[in-house]
Design a protein around this nucleic acid. Sequence first.
DNA 1: AAGGTGACTAACA
DNA 2: ATGTTAGCCACCT
Length: 108
Amino acid sequence: MVEGNFKQRVIQVVKKIPYGKVTTYGTVATLAGLPRGGRLVGGILHFCSEDQDLPWQRIINRFGYISTKCLEHPKALQKALLEDEGVEVSKDFIVDLKKYGWWGEQNF
DNA sequence: AAGGTGACTAACA
DNA sequence: ATGTTAGCCACCT
């Protein structure tokens, strides 16, 4: 009934990302159960970006850089969405992971 | 239906 | 130290 277990898993993880935080593909993949499945995360987000009400903009590569190369999901859009959440994005589309990075477990 | 690509990361030589 | 290879699984042609 699910089209892809991993896709659904990733969606759940992405939805769990707190507002105003960002994380990496590798982290999402790991939380989804695939430590090396970073590519899938990107691919899945590409196809399900706005179909699942996913905060796809909070997913960036491990450098904190917006790696979207698709014109359908422009970096400018992602940058705008992040800034709208209060996340600072440099003019080179780099986010400070030390400050906004989220690594799965919220620090209670 | 089968093969190729992909918004990545890490390990190996 | 840098460069190259390997792996993950879903979507598209």
